[in-house]
Design a protein around this nucleic acid. Structure first.
Lengths: 136, 136
DNA sequence: ACCAGCGTCCTATCGAGCTAGGACGGTGGG
DNA sequence: CCCACCGTCCTAGCTCGATAGGACGCTGGT
């Protein structure tokens, strides 16, 4: 599991981390029982304070995505896929609605917005391919 | 010009206000030479501190959208439409890209995302109609 | 000329969230 | 049994943005 933090994003780093775990579970990239990387490892890899990562993990535990065992690590909970798929649906549709409202209020046509979406999706696909190239 | 603040949004109120002015200019709802409502009026209508509105107006002046005349008011600048259309294109595509990246990383299909966009657009259209109904 | 309304500025305070550095006890492989 | 690694907790300090309340000087309609 690789994490990324966008410092320019309006959402705080701890939420970005929590979302990445949630979405990885929802997408099946993290499976039930799997261990998350340690607080200190993640903190070092994304250049963030361990407390910030800990806060994200704690939030995930509160909502039932994860179960922490002192001294051992943090593990994906049994109910995680259900919880995370529900959260994904909610979070994504909320954020899309916000951005679409804004774009429409700015005078853009729905078709123009859809074009931007497809363009962003294409760019994402290209980046994805480039990443795998580099990994090989 | 009516303003709205979403306290749940991750972007601070002052930026929300600035964006609303920028997008209104880009969409032609605010014309060159038109006066913006006063700092104190806006502050009262959206339940925010006058300093917060002032900060938004100052940012708009810095970028050339608006020209402030002490004692008189804040007016849409001649170059505003150009500036705002450029900013709109940049801001909207940035935010769409962010949300689309997130949704794709969460395992959603592009077609599902487009569906959510269209659904949000439809809801917006319906709200718009309801607002005009109520205004009449 | 008056003065209500305007933009602007100032100091002070508050809250959210991140950072820093250290300490604690539980866990599990060697 | 050891000890490196783990989650957790704590105190302290910082930045950013909003809030509060007040003061200043400029502008424009009457």
């Amino acid at each position: 599991m690789r994490f990324e933090i966008d410092p320019a994003a309006p959402t705080p780093p701890s939420e970005q981390l929590a979302d990445q775990v949630r979405f990885a579970v929802a997408a099946g990239r993290l499976e039930v029982g799997e261990r998350l990387p340690s607080v200190r490892d993640v903190a070092a890899s994304v250049r963030v304070n361990p407390n910030t990562v800990s806060r994200a993990w704690r939030e995930l535990e509160r909502e039932g995505t994860v179960r922490a065992r002192r001294g051992a690590g943090v593990f994906v909970a049994d109910e995680a896929p259900l919880v995370c798929r529900a959260l994904r649906a909610q979070l994504v549709s909320e954020r899309i609605a916000r951005v679409v409202r804004e774009a429409l209020g700015a005078g853009l046509e729905p078709t123009a917005i859809v074009d931007l979406v497809l363009e962003a999706a294409e760019r994402w696909r290209a980046e994805r391919a480039a990443d795998e190239e580099e990994a090989a």
